[in-house]
Amino acid sequence: MNDAVKELEPTQKLKFYQKGTFTVGNRLVSDSDRTVQASLDRSNAITCGHRACQGCGEALGARYAVDAAMRATNGNLIVVNATGCLEVFTTPYPETAWQVAWVHSLFGNAAAVATGVAAAMRVKGRKEVRVFAQGGDGGTTDIGFGCLSGMFERNDDVLYVCYDNEGYMNTGVQRSSATPPAARTATTDVVGAEPGNVFGTGKSLPKIAMAHGIPYVATATVADLHDLERKVTKAMSIHGARYIHVHVPCPLGWGAASHDTIRLARLAVESGFFPVFEAEHGVVTGSRKIRHRIPVAEYLKPQKRFAHLFKGGEDPRVARLQEIADRNIAEYDLLAHEGNV
């Protein structure tokens, strides 16, 4: 905004003191700390009019992540998208919501396509152009895992962002290797001796990414979009393979209210069920501390996919899910100590 226009803008006396909250667009923080989305100069990489569900965590996470990467690279970004919700809801032919160089090939090959794009940019001497690959948890932890591991292992100059909504939501909510235990999906129905997804299954992709020794791995949620932006910005300051795993609630797949997306992401963090941390070269360098610790049941209850755990007295499996949260808290040092809040 130029100064002439600024002078015409009415000033408003601020009534609410929000500093230090998670709220996005906080006008009390300094310019440099403000979200990318607060700027009129933002790239708006995913423009409005796409077909995501109301309250879609992935649409929100992707918008902040891609726009942060756009700011970090002065717009010199090529986005490679895996097949999935994000790809489908943004590009119903002949429309596209992407205002960024964007390419989609297949479900399981986004990381490899990104490798190829990065190689092309290198050979053409386009050092300024960076590559950003993205996909859902199915395209990342399952079908795209081979290509992703190859990209990590070669340390290709690609940032890969996984939007984890813990299942195959685009095809009708089936189980992925990121679906938590006990969760109802279309392929882990709440029938039989152990209703919902089986305990003792699944994988932690951030940990697997770390095992490749790549320069940067981080997790984030849509409850703290500043944190997500900061991590994307940091990732773009590094060359080599980088991975960010973003927890994105899915109202449709989780059976949750659209207005609860951000709340659920916060409860996942505050219960310790989803650890938010950063790692460099395979070593955890820091974690986001829990502010008000809550039992995991508080995170589970608003989600219909866990409703079977709370019918007629508390199911003993809630305690097993609590154990997972407790282990995360111990492993990633998630409890606030003196001075590290």
């Binding site: 090529i78 490679v80 390419v103 090939s105 297949l106 090959n109 490899a112 396509v113 990104a114 490798t115 190829g116 794009v117 990065a118 190689a119 092309a120 940019m121 053409k124 290509c147």
Partner: peptide, 10 residues
């Protein structure tokens, strides 16, 4: 897949 990426990037 990598070839698809590099070819699409020119």
């Amino acid at each position: 897949s990598a070839c698809i990426g590099s070819s699409a990037a020119g």
